[in-house]
Structures are given as C-alpha cells and as structure tokens.
C-alpha cells in the first residue's frame, strides 16, 4: 500500500464523501444536541439557553412517558421474536433438501419491497371485513368474530409487532444462514464420530460459533427497530389513542402536527443516547474491529 505514495493525497479522494456526511449527519447531530438545551420556539430562530429544562419537561410529559415504555416493550418483543424464530428457521433451512434455495430467494421479497408499501398491503390484509387474515383465522376456527387489528387500542401494538416480525424475519434468517454456512462441516463429523447427538451438536458447536452473528443481528435489529418510523406511520400513524405511538412517531407528531420543537430535539437526543449504548455494548463484548 505504501509503495503507491504519489503527490495526490488520499484525503482529496474522500473529501466529497466526508463533506456530504458532515453536512447531513454530523453537523445536524451536533446541532440537535446544542438546540436541545435551548428554548426553540420557531424553526431557524435559536432560542435562549434553558439548561436541562427541555429534558425535565420531556420526562414530565405523560405522552412521552407512555411512548418510552411502549418503545422499550415494542423493541425487545419484536427483536426477541425475530431472533428466536429466525434461528429456528435458519437451522431448518440449513438442512439439505430439494427446494431450500427457492424458499430462501422467495423470502427476500418482503425485504426488498418498500416498507411503506408493505404497510399498505398489511393494512388491507388486516382489514376487519375485507382482509384475508380475519377470514383465515375464522376459517381455522381460531376466532369467532372479526378482530379490529389496527383500530382496537389493546390489539394495535401487537399487530405492529407482528408486521415488524414479518419484515425482520427474512433478514435474521439470512444472517443466521450465512453464519451457519461458515461453520466447517468437519466439526460436526468429528462430533458424530465421538457419538454426539443433535442437541449436543447444536449446544456445543453451532451455538458458540454462531455467537458473533447472533450478537450482530440482534444489535442491528435493535438499532433499527428502536427508531423505526415508516411501517408504523403508514399502518396506524401512532393511533388508535396513541396506543402505537413509539418515540419516532412521537417526535414526528410533536414536530409536524403540534409544531412543538423542543420535545422533538430532546427526544431525538435520548434515542441517539440509547443507540450509542447499544452499539457500545456490542463493540465492547463482540467487536473485533
């Protein structure tokens, strides 16, 4: 690499990229933090310094308290489900049987369909009278009356967890399959010679070697799910009665519907802090870089 030192500086080549990222990500991130200590009454007018008052107001805000609890519940439930079921499915699809490649390829479709469009399809499929899900559940005898998946405040949060699960599952399955395929076949053969059974092979070969991939997938899904916006915004918009109003939706609604800038800023800083903690945990315990 060093043999190629010319006059042109490598910094020149990263300049366009770094400039764009600075203006779109880092300066706004810095400003978000600074502004969260100001009283912002209007976009573009920097208000007076108020210290931690915005954060106090945010934590006293009942809507935000509910939103915070909901976000934690929503993130851990959906990520937990995706990881557990994804691991099981990946183990099954890792078996050699005719057609397993087709299953893998087809299951990519939700991943490359735009999230907002996926949410449109789900809104239709979840419709109490016209959608197919109610019809299927009734035909199977699981429910007797139609469920109002998106308009029943007690049910809506579980419905969006289901949709999140649906969209996140193929990603987890793919990551786990890639991890499983990197485990050398000889390890299992050696274990079989020693007389190990299926469960022991899973517990003492598969699981330890998959640890890094599981940690990475869990971290990424947690980061994405905690700040997920599009699917929920299209499915419920945070309703009914704020029952699905997780923090990103809260930020959007306070900013664009109530024109209240301060909670959007301090809420944003809180989410960033959470993301930093999650990334830190990952790099501390699993990072190799």
């Amino acid at each position: 690499m060093d043999r190629l030192k010319g006059r042109a500086s490598p910094y020149f080549f990263i300049l366009p990229t770094i400039t764009l990222i600075m203006f779109i990500y880092f300066i706004p991130l810095f400003e978000t933090i600074i502004f969260s200590f100001m009283d912002m009454k209007q976009l573009g007018v920097v208000g007076e310094f108020v210290g931690l008052r915005n954060y106090e107001n945010l934590f006293m805000n009942e809507e935000f308290q509910y939103s915070f609890t909901l976000t934690v519940f929503w993130t851990f439930t959906s990520v937990g489900l995706i990881i557990l079921v994804g691991l099981g499915l990946a183990l099954a699809l890792n078996e050699k049987f005719p057609g397993n490649k087709i299953v893998r390829t087809l299951s990519l479709i939700p991943w490359i369909t735009p999230a907002s469009i996926c949410a449109v399809f789900w809104r239709w499929a979840l419709h109490p009278a016209f959608g197919s899900l109610n019809f299927i559940l009734k035909s199977l005898g699981i429910i007797s009356g139609s469920l109002r998946f998106l308009s029943d405040p007690r049910l809506a949060i579980f419905t969006i967890i289901l949709v999140r699960f649906w969209r996140g599952l193929p990603f987890a399955v793919f990551c786990f399959l890639a991890g499983l395929q990197s485990i050398p076949e000889e390890l299992y053969e050696a274990a079989e010679i020693e007389g190990a059974t299926g469960f022991y092979k899973f517990r003492y070969i598969t699981l330890p070697l998959l640890r890094g991939v599981i940690a990475m997938t869990t971290t990424l899904l947690t980061i994405w799910t905690f700040q997920l916006f599009d699917i929920i915004f299209v499915l419920t918009g945070g309703g009914p009665f704020s029952s699905t109003e997780i923090i990103p939706i809260f930020i959007f609604l306070t900013l664009f519907r109530r024109y209240d800038i301060n909670p959007a800023l301090s809420g944003g800083v809180l989410v960033v802090t959470f993301l930093l903690i999650i990334s830190f945990i990952y790099f501390k315990f699993f990072g190799r870089r």
């Binding site: 990500y25 400003e31 976009l43 700040q227 930020i251 944003g268 993301l275």
Partner: peptide, 25 residues
C-alpha cells in the same frame, strides 16, 4: 473515516430533522 461511515448507518434522519430542516430552508 470508516467509523464515521458506519456511524451514519446507526442513525435515522428523523432524529436529526430539526437542524436539517433549518438548513434546507
């Protein structure tokens, strides 16, 4: 530089919308 690149993938634009909106205006 690599760290900066990766860090952008961890953050949703929604969280930075206020300063970005001001800048765009």
């Amino acid at each position: 530089f690599l760290f900066v690149l990766l860090a952008t993938q961890m953050i949703s634009i929604l969280l930075l919308v206020v300063p970005l909106k001001i800048m765009m205006i």
